[in-house]
Design a protein around this nucleic acid. Structure first.
Length: 462
RNA sequence: GGCCCUAUCGUCUAACGGUUAGGACAUCAGGUUUUCAACCUGGCAAUCGGGGUUCGAUUCCCCGUGGGGUCACCA
């Protein structure tokens, strides 16, 4: 059975790149009737926070990405890692290293100066466990390094990039644990992937340099091989990797702004993948069906918010009105006699994201609207003409039922010199806006009394 | 700097080695509309450079160049 996983560190919000990794892993597992797991990589005790963990869970749920089983926390698996570490130490695939930070820094600087890769040369590689243990007894605190095989090519077949080959001389004796109780990423990752029975690891390109390390660890520990697929990065406008630190990369921000989960998923899926047809609107079910790891593109893609806006607009327009209204409610005011559902209907075509409705709906509420007198003027009308037009509208409105407003207005407008000359001043009188919903829609929402009040005010301004 | 990844319109991308290099977003123009949206029609716009291989290269190979990643007692 195919098993994939998403293994975030709870050191910050779920970000766009992480979401895509999770999504692709999820899609791949589900389309193969496999399992998709979550794992919390919180070995960095200082930076990991339970709050972030909660946010990540919450965001994934809201986006409809569900996982199998409960997500294990690495911080609770210390004994397991310890066992493996001891085994490696005994078998000699790992060793204690007593180099000090200063020593290491010095070595690093020297190698850089020599224009070589700053890879630790393994001073204590052959020191021997017995000697090391004695040194520990004397009060030294070593780290644990992997004893990397010398000058060997590590090859793996990346599902997206094909064969990748890295020589162990470019890997070096990397640190796998600070001590027996504090294992580091590469070790815990290799162990957990094996213990969880992960078959395919789909992750970001930044992990390519970690892959040979994990493969070497797999070998040393006698685990099965895992198949890797490395996704290209999602880039910012500056063509640099989207950084966790920028607020705008946090998935939660997009959710809060009112990007619909379906739209976000659809958009993210198309960042670096497409079905090869011209179909662009995809539900999660359709994605599971059509997704193909072979069609994932190799080059990085820039996060283009314009396209998200467009997609989100489509989802908003296609949404059931009641559901959409429910979504909009947090951004709308409450006023007696005002039907918010009607406001949503009147404005939905103008929304890029749900939150937009907050600004766009202001003029429906309250008694008065404020604006410059000049705004009431349609093209080169004179003051008298504007006033006359508004009076004409006033008379009409006083004498009709609010049933077929649009029809009545058009009928009346056709009697005047120009339709615009009638409609524009009326619309501005009602909304106070250069751009707004139509006068009929506004009056239908705010009612006769408020409409007349606003028209009267406009007449007085002129 | 070493190692690794990568290269088609501004952006996301399509194209068994043979296409007028296609689509979408953005943009521009027109239509519709009282305005703004929405909607419809149309336009502009790309194969990084140089060598090969081949009858033929966006596609395969090599070398440049550009971009990115990584080289932590972070993950």
């Amino acid at each position: 059975m195919i098993r994939t996983r998403f293994a975030p560190s709870p050191t910050g919000a779920l970000h766009i790149g992480g979401l895509r990794t999770a999504l692709f892993s999820y899609l791949f597992a589900k389309q193969n009737n496999g399992e998709f797991f979550l794992r919390i990589e919180d070995t960095d005790k200082a930076r990991s926070k339970k709050e972030w963990e909660a946010v990540i869970f919450e965001n994934l749920k809201e986006l409809n990405i569900s996982w199998d089983n409960e997500a294990p926390r690495q911080s609770e698996r210390g004994e397991i890692y310890k066992k493996y570490l001891q085994k490696m130490l005994e078998e000699g695939t790992a060793y204690y290293c007593f180099c000090t930070k200063e020593e290491l820094d010095e070595e690093r600087d020297r190698l850089m100066k020599e224009e070589r890769a700053p890879i630790h040369q393994g001073k204590y590689r052959d020191f021997g466990l017995k000697n090391a243990l004695k040194k520990i007894e004397e009060g030294n605190h070593p780290v644990i390094r992997f004893k990397c095989p010398l000058n060997r090519d590590v090859c793996f077949n990346d599902l997206i990039r094909g064969e990748i080959k890295i020589n162990t001389s470019d890997v070096g004796d990397f640190i796998i644990a600070k001590d027996l109780d504090n294992p580091l990423y590469n070790l815990t990752c290799a162990i957990d992937d094996a213990e969880m029975g992960i078959t395919h690891v789909i992750r970001g390109e930044e992990h390519i340099p970690n892959t040979p390390k994990q493969i070497l660890l797999e070998e040393a520990l006698g685990f099965n091989n895992i198949i890797f697929a490395h996704l290209s990065l999602i880039l910012g406008k500056d063509k640099k990797k989207l950084s966790k630190r920028e607020g705008s990369t946090a998935v939660s921000i997009y959710l809060e702004e009112g990007y619909l989960p379906e739209a976000i998923i659809n958009f993210i899926a198309f960042l670096g993948w497409n079905p090869g047809t011209e179909k662009e609107i995809y539900s999660m079910e359709e994605l599971i069906k059509d997704f193909s790891i072979k069609k994932i593109s190799k080059s990085g893609s820039i996060f283009n918010i314009d396209k998200l806006d467009w997609l989100n607009g489509i989802y908003i327009r296609n949404m059931d009105l009641d559901k959409l209204t429910l979504r909009c409610l947090p951004f709308l005011k409450e006023e007696e006699g005002i039907d918010n559902k009607k406001i949503v209907l009147a404005l939905k075509d103008r929304l890029k994201k749900i939150k937009d409705i907050k600004e766009l709906s202001n003029y429906f509420y309250g008694e008065e609207v404020f604006y410059e007198k000049e705004l009431l003027r349609w093209k080169d009308m004179s003051d008298e003409e504007v006033k006359k037009s508004l009076l004409q509208a006033k008379t009409l409105i006083e004498n009709i039922e609010f049933n077929n407003l649009q029809e009545e207005l058009i009928k009346e407008a056709k009697k005047s010199p120009s339709i615009g000359g009638f409609m524009w001043p009326l619309r501005v009188a009602l909304s106070g806006q250069k751009a707004s919903a139509g006068p009929a829609e506004i009056m239908d929402i705010i009612g006769k009394e408020k409409s007349l009040k606003r028209i009267n005010k406009a007449i007085n301004i002129i």
